[in-house]
């Protein structure tokens, strides 16, 4: 490689770390610690389309910037939708934003759930906790293009019934044609919840799908991956058809800061969605 002079003319390179200004259009309190924000661009320049699986970097003024998946797909210029769980200083600052308040947005970044590869197939979506946020756009897309896919199975695990996201929408999914919805919680008092108690992979064991013609999309805590894969294997689902979304610390989202490395991958750029066989051996390494 010839490196005598850098080829890029400095003035034409747009600073990729510079956010655009957005405003909170709507704020829905999903659970005690989680909100869904609808964000509208403040200014006329067009924003890019956000596809299921992608994420934006959301900047809370003076506090910090964190990766947050799109919880609804959006077309060029349409408002962005993000579901944020308050777990630390930046996510808390974002979750506190009220309609009319401003924040910064960079993105979208990352790859997409390979839904298009599974046209005509059954779709199994497995979500744990906040992991439903990046998968909601997948479910919506399947339901929008109902005829293009086979049976839809949505399996969702949460800690407690009070921590379930998108309650009304879940009911609509349950009532949708050719759709199975399974929800399970880890703990409950038995007064507030009549549904299953236990772990998500158990739902997978009972789910109806044709293993040969199924795409499985999984997002949740990393410890959930192995039990689900194990169940998928029991059901004879080829593991190339399993896709997982991973997360690691992320500062720049454009493959320059180094933080999100996972073996050879930059999760921000090569992910966050990976075919399971591509990360299987890496997931076994501790503290990678």
């Amino acid at each position: 490689m010839s490196s005598t002079t850098a080829t890029n003319s400095p003035t034409t390179v747009r600073e990729p770390m510079l956010p655009s200004t957005y405003r909170v259009l709507r704020r829905e309190q999903e659970t005690a610690d989680t909100v869904t924000l609808t964000l509208e661009r403040d200014g006329e320049a067009l924003a890019a389309a956000c596809e299921p699986g992608q994420f934006n970097m959301l900047y809370a003024f003076g506090v910090g910037e964190v990766p947050i998946s799109v919880s609804a797909a959006s077309d060029v210029g349409e408002p962005l939708v993000h579901t944020i769980r308050s777990v630390g200083k930046t996510s808390a600052a974002l979750a506190r934003l009220k309609p009319g308040q401003s924040l910064g947005v960079r993105g979208p970044f990352g790859n997409v759930w390979p839904l298009d590869d599974y046209e005509g197939h059954d779709i199994v979506v497995i979500a744990g906790g906040i992991g439903l946020a990046p998968l909601r756009p997948v479910v919506r897309r399947v339901l929008e293009r109902r005829a293009s896919f086979g049976h839809l199975v949505v399996l969702y695990g949460a800690r407690h019934p009070s921590e379930l996201l998108y309650l009304e929408e879940l009911e609509r999914w349950r009532a949708s044609p050719d759709t199975t919805l399974g929800i399970t919680v880890d703990r409950t008092t038995g007064v507030e919840w009549m549904g299953p108690v236990g772990i998500v992979p158990r739902l997978l064991a009972r789910a109806r799908f044709d293993p040969i013609e199924t795409g499985l999309f999984l997002c949740g805590p990393e410890v959930m991956i192995e039990p689900c894969v194990r169940e998928a294997l029991t059901r004879k689902l080829p593991l190339e058809q399993v896709h997982v979304s991973l997360e690691r610390n992320m500062h720049c989202a454009i493959g320059l800061c180094g933080h999100c490395q996972f073996g050879p991958h930059f999760i921000c750029r090569d992910g966050p969605v990976f075919a399971y066989p591509d990360v299987e051996s890496l997931l076994r390494v501790r503290e990678l």
Binding site: V87, G128, G157, R159, D186, G198, I199, G220, V223
Partner: peptide, 10 residues
């Protein structure tokens, strides 16, 4: 797994 309380990683 339930004991690990995996969704409560905050």
């Amino acid at each position: 797994l339930q004991m690990l309380d995996v969704f409560h990683d905050g």
